[in-house]
C-alpha cells in the first residue's frame, strides 16, 4: 500500500531546475535509497518531503493526506542531517528529548523514551555528554536517536554515513539496517555511495540531473541498468558501443550474440558486461582473444585488464588458490550471452 507518494514534484531555484517531475511511491516499512552523483537533487528532494523546501510543482502525500504545503513542524517526520545538526548547547539526553518536549510528553514518559532510544543506538552511558565530546559515529547515532524517539511515520536520512571513515561506515550500515528492521520505520536515505545504497536498501532510486531515471531493487538495478550512466555508476562495467542486428550487436565488425526484445535492427546500442561475468580462458578457447595488460591481486579476487580487438576490458576472477595468467600472456575472454546487457542509446533514440 502506498504510504508516501510524490506526484510530479519539481523544484526550481530561479531559472535552475534542481528536481524535475519526480514520481515516487513508497510502501510502509520500506527502506528506499536516493542514489546519484553530487548536485543531482537528492537533498532537495528529501527536504521537500521534510517540508524544509517548498516544491514549485507537484503533490506530496503521506498516508492519504496531502502534506505538500504543511509546515515541517506539523509533519512529524524524523530527519537526520548530513552534518547531524545536533544542538551544541544541549546534552545528548536533552537533544533526544527535544522532540518529545515539543509534543508535551510528560516528564516521566519522556525520560523513559529517551532512555530507550539511547539504548537502541547503544549510547546509554553518554546521556550527559555534550555533542562536542562525542566522536563522529556517536554523533550520528545521537542524531538517529533524536529522529526516532518521536516515532515518526517516515525517517529521512541525508548522507548519514558520509562523514565517517571507511571501517566505521561499514559498521554503521549494518547498524542502520538493524535499527530500521527493529523499529520498522519507513526510511528514505540519500547517498552518493552505490555500494551503500545496494547493501542496505529494499529499493534504490537513481537520480541524474534532477530526474529519477530508475527505481528498482538493488539486485535488479545492478543486473538490469536502464542506461549506460547507471550501468557504470552502479558497480563497474565494460561498455562497448555498436549497432543492433537481429540476433546480436555488431561491434567493430564482430557480431556478439545477445538478446533484446524491443530494439529495431540498425539502432545504435551499448553493450554492458560486468567484470565478474567475464571468464578467462586459454588463448583461442573463448569468444574474444586478447592479451593480459595488467594484473592486480586484491586478496579475494584478481583484477585483470585485457587488451582485445574491441578495446581494453576489465575482468575480475575469484582467487581459487592458483596463480592465474601472467602479464603479457595471450588469453581469451568468454561469457554467457545472457549476461550481455543491451542498452539502447538514449541520445540517438531521442
Amino acid at each position: 500500500m502506498a504510504f508516501l507518494t510524490l506526484e510530479r514534484v519539481s523544484k526550481e531555484f530561479g531559472t535552475f531546475t534542481a528536481v524535475r517531475d519526480v514520481n515516487l511511491t513508497i510502501d510502509k516499512g520500506e527502506f528506499v535509497s536516493l542514489l546519484g552523483p553530487s548536485g543531482c537533487g537528492k537533498t532537495t528532494t528529501l527536504q521537500m518531503i521534510a517540508g524544509l523546501v517548498e516544491p514549485t510543482q507537484g503533490r506530496i502525500s503521506l498516508d492519504g493526506h496531502d502534506i505538500t504545503h504543511e509546515k515541517p513542524n506539523r509533519r512529524g517526520l524524523g530527519v537526520v542531517f548530513q552534518s547531524y545538526a545536533l544542538f551544541p548547547h544541549m546534552t545528548v539526553a536533552q537533544n533526544v528529548a527535544f522532540g518529545l518536549e515539543m509534543r508535551r510528553v510528560p516528564q516521566a514518559e519522556r525520560t523513559e523514551r529517551v532512555r530507550e532510544a539511547l539504548s537502541l543506538v547503544q549510547l546509554s552511558s553518554f546521556a550527559d555528554r555534550y555533542p562536542r565530546q562525542l566522536s563522529g559515529g556517536q554523533r550520528q547515532r545521537v542524531a538517529i536517536a533524536r529522529a526516532l524517539v518521536i516515532a515518526p511515520p517516515v525517517l529521512l536520512l541525508d548522507e548519514p554515513l558520509s562523514n565517517l571513515d571507511a571501517k566505521l561506515r561499514e559498521e554503521m550500515q549494518f547498524e542502520l539496517r538493524r535499527i530500521q528492521r527493529k523499529v520498522g520505520t519507513t526510511t528514505i536515505m540519500v547517498t552518493h555511495d552505490q555500494a551503500e545504497a545496494l547493501s542496505i536498501s529494499d529499493r534504490v532510486v537513481v537520480m541524474e540531473d534532477g530526474r529519477m531515471t530508475q527505481v528498482d531493487a538493488p539486485y535488479r538495478l545492478y543486473e538490469q541498468p536502464s542506461n549506460t550512466f547507471i550501468s557504470s555508476f552502479v558497480g563497474k562495467t565494460n561498455l562497448l558501443a555498436g549497432t543492433w542486428r537481429r540476433s546480436g550487436a555488431e561491434i567493430g565488425g564482430v557480431l556478439l550474440e545477445a538478446s533484446a526484445p524491443e530494439i529495431a535492427a540498425g539502432t545504435p546500442v551499448t553493450l554492458s558486461i560486468r567484470p565478474e561475468k567475464l571468464l578467462l580462458r586459454d588463448a583461442g578457447a573463448g569468444r574474444l582473444d586478447g592479451r593480459v595488460a595488467s594484473r592486480f591481486f586484491l586478496g579475494s579476487q584478481w583484477l585483470f585488464t585485457v587488451e582485445t580487438s574491441l578495446g581494453t576490458m576489465t575482468v575480475t576472477i575469484p582467487n581459487q588458490g592458483e596463480e592465474p595468467p601472467a602479464e603479457g600472456s595471450p588469453v581469451s575472454l568468454d561469457w554467457s550471452p545472457a549476461n550481455l546487457r543491451v542498452i539502447a542509446d538514449t541520445a540517438a533514440a531521442a
Binding site: L86, F98, M102
Partner: peptide, 18 residues
Amino acid sequence: LDRSAEQAARTLGAGEWT
C-alpha cells in the same frame, strides 16, 4: 551559524518562535 540545527528543531515539532 549552522542553519541545519534550526531546521532539525523545526522537524522535531518546534514552531518558528520556539
